[in-house]
Simulated scan of single mutants.
Amino acid sequence: MPSLLWFDLSMNNMSGGIPFPYCRLRYLEKLQLSDNNLSGEVPNCWKYSSNLLLLDLSSNKLVGGVPVSLCNLQKLESLHLSHNNLSGREIKYTTRQLLIDALIDLSNNNLSGYIPEELGNLHGLRSLNLSRNYLIGQIPWSIGGMKQLEVLDLSRNNLSGTIPSSLAALNFLNHLNLSYNNLSGRIPTGNQLQTFADPSVYDGNPNLCEPPLIKNCTVNIAKADEEE
């Protein structure tokens, strides 16, 4: 089927690995294999799928890393790999060239390591979900460069450090979840961040302070000085 444009086999009981021919259909624009029992690694053959706009492999039993050949998908708009058993730090290099301008969902996996600074180069991205992984380190300052971002979910990781004030530059942000990490310090203010009045956005970060939380940074600093 060399001229196939849309291939949807989602919500079935398919098992086994992802056959290589699926990612060699040169004219394919949408490939949806979500909600199955597919296992094994995501094949590293996507360099042939130059016209792919949407790739949805979510809710399977896939393992291994995010293949580097995804970098070749220059037209890719939406990447769904959530609810699998993906692991490793491969996310670090696959974001160097991607031009995804719609959605990246890698939530509910076993990804570890740091959030790459290169994510800030995805200036047109509208939704980023990296929740429920094992990511560490700080939230990159570069995320403030994703000017079109509407959804940012980094909840339930092991992120630490302060929340970068660059998030205040995300004027289209309407959903933010940073809960259940190890973030600390003052919650930035200004612009769009002022609209997030629900403290649950920051739940599970006991060392964060200032509104919308009731914890006051100044008081806590004074107490720390007294204890010294």
Score class of each variant (00 low, 15 high):
Asn158Trp: 12
Leu135Ala: 03
Gly145Tyr: 07
Gln74Arg: 14
Thr189Val: 05
Thr189Leu: 00
Asn121Thr: 12
Thr94Pro: 07
Pro199Glu: 04
Ser58Tyr: 10
Gly65Phe: 13
Leu173Cys: 05
Leu99Gln: 15
Gly137Tyr: 11
Pro164Thr: 09
Asn108Lys: 14
Asn85Ile: 08
Asn191Asp: 09
Ala197Gly: 13
Ser184Arg: 10
Ser107Cys: 06
Gly137His: 09
Ile139His: 01
Pro164Asn: 09
Glu150Cys: 02
Asn60Cys: 07
Asn157Phe: 02
Ser200Ile: 12
Leu122Lys: 00
Trp141Leu: 15
Gln194Gly: 10
Thr195Ser: 15
Asn191Arg: 14
Pro67Gln: 03
Ala169Asn: 14
Asn109Arg: 04
Leu176Arg: 00
Leu128Ala: 05
Asn84Leu: 06
Leu73Phe: 02
Asn157Asp: 10
Val63His: 11
Asn133Glu: 03
Leu81Pro: 01
Leu159His: 10
Met146Leu: 04
Leu76Cys: 08
Ile163Gly: 04
Glu77Asp: 09
Gly190Met: 00
Gln148Cys: 13
Gln194Lys: 06
Ser155Lys: 05
Ser87Asp: 14
Leu111Met: 07
Asn129Leu: 12
Gly113Ile: 09
Glu118Gly: 05
Asn121Asp: 10
Leu167His: 05
Ser184Gly: 08
Asp198Lys: 04
Arg96Pro: 11
Gly64Trp: 04
Gly64Gln: 02
Leu159Gly: 07
Val66Glu: 06
Leu173Tyr: 08
Asp153Asn: 13
Asn181Pro: 06
Ser179Met: 07
Val151Ile: 13
Ile100Ala: 01
Ser166His: 13
Tyr134Ala: 14
Tyr134Cys: 08
Ile91Leu: 15
Val66Ile: 14
Asp198Glu: 03
Met146Ile: 12
Arg132Lys: 10
Leu173His: 01
Gly144Asn: 07
Ile104Lys: 00
Gly88Tyr: 09
Gln74Ala: 12
Ile143Val: 14
Asn191Ala: 12
Asn108Asp: 13
Pro188Thr: 01
Trp141Asp: 12
Tyr202Ile: 06
Gln194Glu: 13
Asp153Ser: 07
Ile104Ser: 00
Thr94Tyr: 09
